[in-house]
Nucleic acid binder design. Structure first.
Lengths: 331, 331
DNA sequence: AATAGACTAACAAACGTTTGCGAAAAGTGA
DNA sequence: TCACTTTTCGCAAACGTTTGTTAGTCTATT
């Protein structure tokens, strides 16, 4: 590759002038600038990102810490992130912290080695608050998705889980169901807690009894939804509707019900949460609660970009996104 | 962050010694090495990747050019790539060339700016051979997935599409079907051509007539499978089995059939290609041809790593992966 | 005791940029 | 023409590493 010096030599100027010319900086004659640009094009010059970043202390790349890139749930968030990162000329660098987020490694690989300017951390199953505190302390700009933190300095993006769960449960109630089961997400994490709370609220508002037997702990995975549903189907009296903590578990529920020989929605209704791409294709198509995942991804990068640009007010943003009921045919 | 100089000062040695000590290089006394390592730990030193790469001319990151990261088809390939990249300490950097691969941009952003040491290019819909030739000319190490190129210098990984299609069609024939339709992939690309060829071969081997009316051009998307199936169902006589060019189109087929009021597999059988994660969950679970996507991803990085390591024989590797029939309940 | 050889550590250059500062050149107004 | 301002450019340092070469210090051998 041609370097800035090659251009300088060919143009008969010094390297600094070339740099200024190519970066549209003040202080170089328009004629020489034109000449330099011309030569740069001829030589197919493209700046060495490493050298540049080394002095500017900016890499124009954002690290994305995510449990599993290939989870369908995250794919649209990622797309959303890309759309705004792209436009701003930023690159996205994923940390493949599949299951066990070895926090130190990520911090090192991405932040300490100065490969990224900031971080987007997505997923509520990343529980290590210590990790987050570290970032705060080291003054690394970052934003959290799917996680709500009280600290006024941290940027958080989340979805109104309580509201969404209420929406789902209300809809079932409105359809005449009174024995409504709920398969929760992974035990102990915020999303699970909030959705369960919303479910209870809806029951309470409708003066429906809360039956602990109708609550099963899941894991956000297909398997968990399947297992929980099989258990629920044994109950007497059987629930007439199941509110699954997410779509993936709802798929498991659908499968279990189908194997059990019951029909959806006639004999038992199922509603999910998330609205994954695939939920249009289940049999029957899944009624669910949509999370604006694309927008959340966009928002995350927007915020981060603003704090990277040094805009004061962009610090400590708390953005809650609304949910939406998507009616299909499983209720 | 602490730099190498901070450590040098604190240890009372020069920066070069620190570098050598930390990199386990020959020529530094064991006592001073120990001392330096100790101090580095205290200071929480972590090397600046930019500075290091600038002089070593290695970034230890691999660029992945892929049409759409979030495509479920690619997710397992990506996982496979990660497993071996991780172990080797390499980072993966994705180019989000969603639809239109603007080749110049990618070359610039990743290669010319020296952010990556090599490239993995996945997806047969990346047709620009010009792009590939550019890489060859600039001597960028790269490997292609899902693309077969004759040039003896390029590394290619693909799956035995003809064989897979034969497997699928044979299985349908074996199950007694004689009126077998095929929904092809996107017109004109190699994968589509090969699978169609395999289908025809199987028909010929079984001395079954080839009926052009049973061939429909799809697009590898759900929509295309849906549309094509609706057309096929109007035919008289109707095909009794459909071989979809990939699973996503098979999902569309399943949906169209269900809406049409026919039952799978009793009245019409469906077989796919790919074996996506989701194919276990369709109704009925989809019989399909599995591609070892995880292994293909692994292999790609393995090859690239070998050529990056300068191992001669690693140049021009052609790796064809076998397919496998996965029997479920849609046939 | 002298000298060769082996260790150890420092020096300095290099990687390709950006950028503050100063110097030269050009332009301006009287 | 002179003094002054403005424009244009070059110099040099800096970013944080790595690495070839050199200088110095031991150790061992004679």
């Amino acid at each position: 590759m041609a370097t800035i010096k090659d251009i300088a030599k060919k143009a008969g100027v010094s390297a600094s002038v070339v740099s200024r010319a190519l970066n549209n900086k003040y202080g170089v004659n328009e004629k020489t600038r034109a000449k330099i640009i011309q030569i740069a094009r001829e030589l197919q010059y493209y700046p060495n990102a490493l050298a540049r970043s080394l002095v500017t202390r900016k890499t124009e790349t954002i690290g994305v810490v995510i449990a599993d890139i290939s989870e369908p749930f995250y794919s649209r968030i990622i797309k959303g992130m890309y759309t705004v990162a792209d436009r701003a000329g930023y690159t996205l660098l994923f940390s493949n912290s599949y299951e066990s987020l070895e926090k130190t490694n990520i911090l090192h690989k991405m932040v300490d080695s100065e490969r990224v300017d900031g971080l987007v951390i997505v997923g509520s199953n990343i529980r290590e608050t210590e990790f987050v505190l570290n970032l705060l302390q080291e003054k690394i700009p970052f934003v959290l998705i799917e996680r709500k933190l009280d600290d006024p300095k941290v940027n958080c993006i989340w979805v109104e889980n309580e509201e969404g769960a209420r929406l789902a449960t209300d809809y079932l109630i409105q359809k005449g169901h009174t024995r409504i089961a709920h398969i929760t997400g992974t035990h102990g994490i915020q999303v699970t807690i909030d959705r369960l709370a919303g479910y209870k609220q809806a029951l309470a508002s409708a003066r429906l009894p809360f039956n602990p037997a109708y609550i099963r702990t899941g894991d956000f995975l297909h398997e968990g939804g399947y297992r929980a549903t099989r258990e629920l189907l044994q109950l007497n009296p059987r629930p007439t509707a199941i509110f699954a903590g997410n779509d993936t578990m709802a798929y498991g529920a659908l499968q279990a019900i189908s194997e059990f020989g019951l029909s959806v929605p006639d004999e038992i209704a199922v509603i999910g949460f998330d609205d994954l791409e695939f939920s249009v294709l289940t049999n029957p198509p899944l009624t669910t609660i949509r999370q604006p995942r694309f927008e959340m991804g966009k928002k995350a990068i927007e915020i981060l970009l603003r704090v990277l640009a040094g805009e004061e007010e962009a610090s400590g943003v708390k953005a809650a996104f609304p949910t939406e009921l998507v009616v299909r045919r499983s209720v």
